[in-house]
Design a protein around this nucleic acid. Structure first.
Length: 281
DNA sequence: TAACTAATAT
DNA sequence: AATATTAGTT
């Protein structure tokens, strides 16, 4: 089913670790569960179009990723209110963690640990306007960002939508907007240099290749297009050129990583765990 | 008004 | 350099 042609796959946390003390995740619970690669992307209908047509099954149009997101949010809030006595969210084995981050979003990255658990707001600046710590765009987070942007297409890739589709807890629209601004500049710069040459300075951006669909002026070859693109769906998955299958929900625990500084180890091992950076820069 | 974007600041 | 903040548009 989900053949990944595009090569955009989520790397799972440990390559088959099994240790319990990773980041609070109980890995035993995860063993045996299908990996991200094995799951059907949300962007794909469960019933292939052809098959559906053959059996006169009406297409399932309504289920867009946004719908899924909304449903998910509803479920989460329901769960929240249901478990009133339970003050602690903690990091669940999968994405079951929703630390209320009213003041300051804490979070852990996929394979990083968020064991810090400073339930006590250390510096005591919790009262009024509590400033959020700086968001660190880890390679994983950026990857998700890129995938969503790619699937939205340049046209509709705007902060709000991107944020919603990324579905990363603690990630705000403004976070996305800032990153998007930078990313657009990066893409433009790269187009200028035509081929090759991710500068060493752009580590984060270079960590995930810019999808071809985002390189807008691909010299419009009117031909070479598949004769009939199945129905044109406006919103999501608008300009996805037959390449990649999509993004998944909650693949990496879906938490934004905040940090005081960019301690992102590269190459997958994001060893940064959340510690706050208070006070001045 | 809210959201997007560009410019500027830390 | 990486994010935040501000400000100007739509």
């Amino acid at each position: 089913m989900g053949e990944e042609a595009g090569g955009y796959d989520f790397d799972f946390g440990g390559g088959g670790g099994g240790y319990g003390g990773y980041d609070g995740r109980v890995t035993e619970w995860e063993t045996g569960l299908p990996g991200c690669d094995e799951l059907t992307p949300l962007s794909q209908p469960l019933v292939p179009p052809g098959l559906a047509a053959a059996f006169r099954i009406p297409p399932e149009p309504g289920r867009t990723l946004l719908d899924v997101h909304h449903a998910s949010s509803a479920t989460v809030s329901r769960l929240r209110s249901a478990s009133s006595g339970n003050g602690h969210a903690g990091t669940g084995a999968n994405g079951a963690s929703f630390p209320s981050f009213p003041g300051k979003g804490a979070a852990a990255g996929d394979d990083s640990g968020n064991r810090d658990n400073n339930s006590a707001e250390s510096a005591g600046e919790k009262s009024a306007a509590a400033k959020r710590a700086r968001l660190v765009w880890t390679p994983q987070l950026h990857k998700r960002f890129v995938e969503v942007v790619a699937h939205l297409g340049i046209k509709s890739a705007v902060p709000k939508t991107i944020m919603q589709l990324m579905n990363v807890e603690g990630l705000t629209r403004e976070n996305v907007a800032r990153h998007l601004q930078k990313y657009r500049l990066y893409v433009k710069r790269m187009q200028g240099l035509s081929n090759e040459g991710p500068s060493a300075s752009d580590h984060i951006f270079a960590s995930t290749p810019v999808p071809p669909s985002l390189r807008e002026p691909q010299v419009p070859h009117a031909a070479a297009m598949a004769p009939a693109m199945y129905h044109h769906h406006p919103a999501p998955m608008g300009g996805v050129a037959a390449g990649h299958g999509g993004y998944y929900q909650q693949q990496h625990s879906g938490h934004a990583v905040y940090n005081g500084y960019g301690g992102h180890g590269h190459g997958g091992g994001v060893s940064s765990y959340p510690h706050y950076h208070h006070g001045d820069q």
